[in-house]
Design a protein around this nucleic acid. Structure first.
Length: 504
RNA sequence: GGCGACGUACCCAAGUGGUUAAGGGAAGGCUCUGCAAAAGCCUCAUUCGUCGGUUCGACUCCGACCGUCGCCUCCA
């Protein structure tokens, strides 16, 4: 199987070919940092994270650049409302953005360039466009003249000739020749804060939206690079304008593969603050859902499908994650790390015919099945299906005593490789920063109080309960069980002894 | 109006021109257990929105229709 990706430009599945063998240059459209990102945003960022992990697992040396758009109308408005300098205002939102990514176990991008750190690059780009005759000035602002770029509309397939050319814009803020034209440089306006104004060769003002992505992507990835992603709403006008700016300036193809994630809906509707169905990550964590369950839900629907977010779905996701963790726990016990008591029993009971080579083959078959799905346009749902098929088969073997400790180790290896390293819904060997259990604390401030009920105390209580059971004092035993439950500790009696876990 | 996505069991969802239509959740049953809980197993769509067409054969290809959602203005 080879990697195939759905290219918005061609509207078809294409075999991926990198510009430079073995390497991938990836630009993932990042947030405008004026508020807390919502779970719809996070769906896109988590998808992009999985994409990077898959690329790296396929041995592509992947450079991921994600912009932070920290200058535009919204950030200016926000800064003014907050009474803060622009930079200070956007710093705060960048901090919560990273906190959210970290809480969901997103592996950081290679680079997070900020628009305001690239004013000179943007000015240079505008000058390049001007030199090639793509711009005009009006009232001190600089506009991109769409009419000079024949390919305009090729990504979105929107036929803008339907829009009346030369029509005076209903927009009373700016003057432009053609409704389709867009600003690459906006002249400073009355009342705009000093902190959001730059004095450059283009005058006093600020860059237009779109420009930062062209300037920064080409700076860090080259004038032609492999993959550019975002959500579907970016297709027009954002990405369309990026193409115009970039190709207008260089005369070269800008991007080879355009990938776009579908939106997340809540209860079948577009998420909107006015509808009361608007959620951020802290909103969900407060409801005691684990980051892993949230991530599972986001990953369980392939990126080109709309994802209908519901709390029922989130509960289902939490259960699915527990199934994976249960298997991991059982495998760990089979590996014999949980004490000699179990060891003796297994020796007595099983004398297992180790599945050995057969089992190794099953593991690699499962691995192949998972990657067949992932390489098919990042089909995460198919990958999960393959993973869970393996989970079921492994449970059956485990139950039948057919797994040797070495088999268990191999199975755990696969589990952690796929669910951990690739999908990020279990802890991986590489530390991912993904919290294992829900907590009331927001990811930004991780006060670790109440989290740790002392383990030696738990063990002591379990021992006491065992003693009580031995004397058939079930009342006392049950009392201890309830006591532990009250502290969030769930006991499980298994044939091999008691084990416990924290209540999810 | 223009562009686009989607419609598979109670919910989520993969997938294929032709042997038994993945998987997860829920539900029911069973095993285990002092009782529980947890866990594991088993069961759970003769059928893939509707109607036509192509075909020896379609859920999968084509067309129409119905329905849901989105973009076309800021938006992940």
């Amino acid at each position: 199987m080879t990697l195939r990706l759905y290219n918005t430009m061609s509207r078809s599945l294409e075999e991926f070919r990198p510009v430079r063998p073995g390497k991938i240059g990836l630009y993932t459209c990042g947030p405008t940092v004026y508020n807390r990102v919502h779970i719809g945003n996070l769906r896109t960022f988590v998808w992009e994270d999985v994409m990077c992990r898959v690329f790296r697992a396929l041995s592509y040396e992947t450079t991921q650049v994600m912009n932070l758009t920290d200058i535009d109308d919204k950030t200016i408005r926000g800064a003014m409302a907050a009474g803060l300098p622009l930079r200070e205002f956007t710093d705060r939102h960048i901090a919560t953005f990273f906190a959210d990514l970290n809480a969901l176990g997103v592996v950081p991008a290679t680079l997070y360039p900020r628009a305001t750190d690239h004013i000179p690059e943007m000015v240079a780009l505008v000058k390049k466009l001007a030199a090639r005759g793509h711009t005009y000035e009006s009232d001190g602002s600089v506009w991109f003249r769409i009419a000079t770029f024949p390919g305009y509309g090729k990504l979105s397939k929107i036929d803008l000739s339907a829009v009346k050319r030369g029509a005076r814009v209903a927009d009373d803020e700016y003057d432009k020749e053609d409704v389709r034209d867009f600003a690459v440089w906006k002249v400073a306006k009355e009342g705009e804060p000093e902190s959001a104004t730059w004095t450059t060769e283009l005058g006093r003002g600020r860059p237009g939206w779109h420009l930062e992505c062209s300037a920064m992507s080409m700076k860090y990835l080259g004038e032609t690079f492999d993959i550019h992603t975002g959500a579907v709403d970016n297709i027009f006008p954002h990405h369309e304008n990026e193409i115009a700016q970039s190709e207008g300036a260089t005369g070269k193809p800008f991007v080879n593969f355009w990938l776009h994630a579908e939106h997340l809906l809540v209860d079948g509707e577009k998420m909107a603050k006015s509808k009361g169905n608007f959620y951020t990550l802290p909103d969900l964590l407060e409801k005691a859902f684990s980051p892993r369950a949230i991530r599972y839900l986001l990953v369980s629907v392939p990126y080109r499908m709309k994802l209908n977010f519901t709390f029922d779905g989130l509960k289902a996701a939490a259960s699915a994650v527990e199934r994976l963790e249960s298997l991991d726990l059982r495998l760990r016990e089979r590996e014999g790390r949980k004490g000699k008591e179990e060891e003796e029993i297994s020796l007595k009971v099983n004398a297992p015919e180790a599945a050995g080579g057969d089992f190794a083959e099953r593991v690699s078959a499962a691995h192949r099945a998972v990657f067949d799905s992932l390489e098919d346009d990042l089909n995460t749902a198919g990958a999960l299906g393959a993973l869970f098929s393996f989970v079921k088969a492994t449970n059956v073997d485990l139950e039948a005593g057919h797994l040797s400790p070495a088999d268990a180790t191999a199975a755990r290896g696969l589990l952690h490789e796929i669910a951990g390293n690739i999908l990020g819904i279990m802890p991986s060997d590489a530390a991912s920063g993904l919290a294992s259990s829900p907590s009331k604390k927001s990811p930004s401030e991780s006060s670790s109080e109440s989290r740790d009920v002392d383990e030696t105390w738990i063990d002591a209580r379990i021992a006491a309960r065992k003693a009580a059971k031995k004397t058939r004092d079930f009342k006392a035993a049950d009392a201890i069980r309830d006591e532990l439950l009250g502290r969030g500790i769930v006991l499980e009696d298994t044939p091999h002894g008691v084990r416990w876990k924290r209540k999810p």
